[in-house]
């Protein structure tokens, strides 16, 4: 767009710019307001929040809501499991995707075409809820930590993103390493991986966010084992209470357990606890995931 600036802006252009700025500002507000509102309520005294009218600034500032929710055992346990599954799931996912991507980027690899098609098909054909559930059950992974990690280790989508990145690296690097007597695993470890840092950062972010945000696997497989609960699942139970009277622990019960804090304050505080780790991380990885998403996308 730099070229456009060389021309003098006409009156129509100026009007357009003003309107466009207003539209963009609206997008900013609509995106940010809900988060700021949740934050304000979570930092506001529960008894005061009930009066309503909290928008962006807490009226009666307090950290009590946070100190109260962290007395709840389920949340502490959930936080630990969520962190653990995020770390383990990301590491497993990175290893599998990068290794597969490396082998698939090797044009001389015999099984390349087969594996490529084999993986691509998994993106289109999914067995569905019941067959997957029965498989997990038969593998004995119900009520266990591993159900969070193992089923998702191989992701065709991630493999293909990393592969198109490796495809863009000069092949001569691999060949010269080969001439120096390096085997394929050494090439992967010493040559390819260090060069792949940007795309690995992207995939790590996708994997970590996916792990951190999932709740349905806890709901389906681990609902009856409190030791494997996750933060998202705990939040889900608390939030569902506001729309329907479904059993389990709900915010009202929790509120009774927790002194005089209203369910709404609890919901908002947990929402912030669940959201903040992501908010802190993603802006720093922006340049990586933007290029990761657009890898090869504009060739057409």
């Amino acid at each position: 767009m730099a070229a456009n600036k060389a021309f003098n802006a006409t009156r129509g252009d100026k009007i357009f710019d003003v309107c466009n700025t207003i539209i963009m500002a609206l997008v900013l507000i609509v995106t940010l307001y809900p988060f700021l509102n949740v934050l304000a309520i979570s930092l506001n005294e529960s008894s005061d929040t009930v009066r309503g009218g909290i928008h962006l600034i807490p009226r009666a500032f307090t950290l009590e809501n946070y100190s109260v929710i962290f007395q709840y055992q389920g949340l502490l346990q959930g936080a630990q499991i969520s962190i653990l599954r995020t770390i383990v799931g990301t590491i497993f996912g990175l290893i599998s995707a990068s290794m597969l991507a490396f082998t698939l980027s090797r044009v001389d690899f015999q099984a390349r075409k087969f594996i490529s098609t084999f993986l691509a098909l998994t993106m289109y054909v999914t067995a569905g809820l019941v067959p997957t559930f029965l498989l997990i059950r038969d593998l004995g992974m119900i009520n266990s930590f591993w159900v969070y990690v193992l089923p998702g280790v191989v992701s065709a989508f991630n493999v293909f993103i990393i592969r198109s990145f490796i495809d863009g690296l000069p092949y001569a690097l691999q060949e010269s390493a080969k001439l120096d007597g390096a085997n394929d695993f050494t090439i992967y470890l010493k040559v390819i991986l260090p060069l792949c840092k940007p795309v690995l950062a992207t995939i790590a972010l996708f994997l970590a966010v996916g792990q951190w945000n999932s709740w349905f696997d806890t709901y389906l497989y681990n609902a009856s084992s409190p030791q494997w609960t996750t933060l998202q699942y705990e939040l889900m139970k608390v939030l569902q209470q506001s729309t329907q009277q479904s059993g389990a622990v709900n915010a009202n019960d929790m509120a009774k357990q927790m002194a005089s804090i209203s369910p709404e304050s609890i919901r908002m505080a947990i929402t912030i606890v669940v959201t903040v780790p992501i908010l802190v991380v993603y802006p720093f990885l922006q340049k990586y995931f933007v290029s990761g998403m657009t890898l090869g996308a504009v060739k057409a």
Binding site: L100, F109, L134, L135
Partner: peptide, 23 residues
């Protein structure tokens, strides 16, 4: 080495993505 780095994950994908299709 290429086989060692890919086949385990292919089997993995087979178990979690193809086996359920049998269901």
């Amino acid at each position: 080495y290429l086989y060692l780095m890919s086949v385990p994950f292919v089997i993995w994908a087979f178990i979690f993505s193809y086996v359920p299709l049998w269901g």
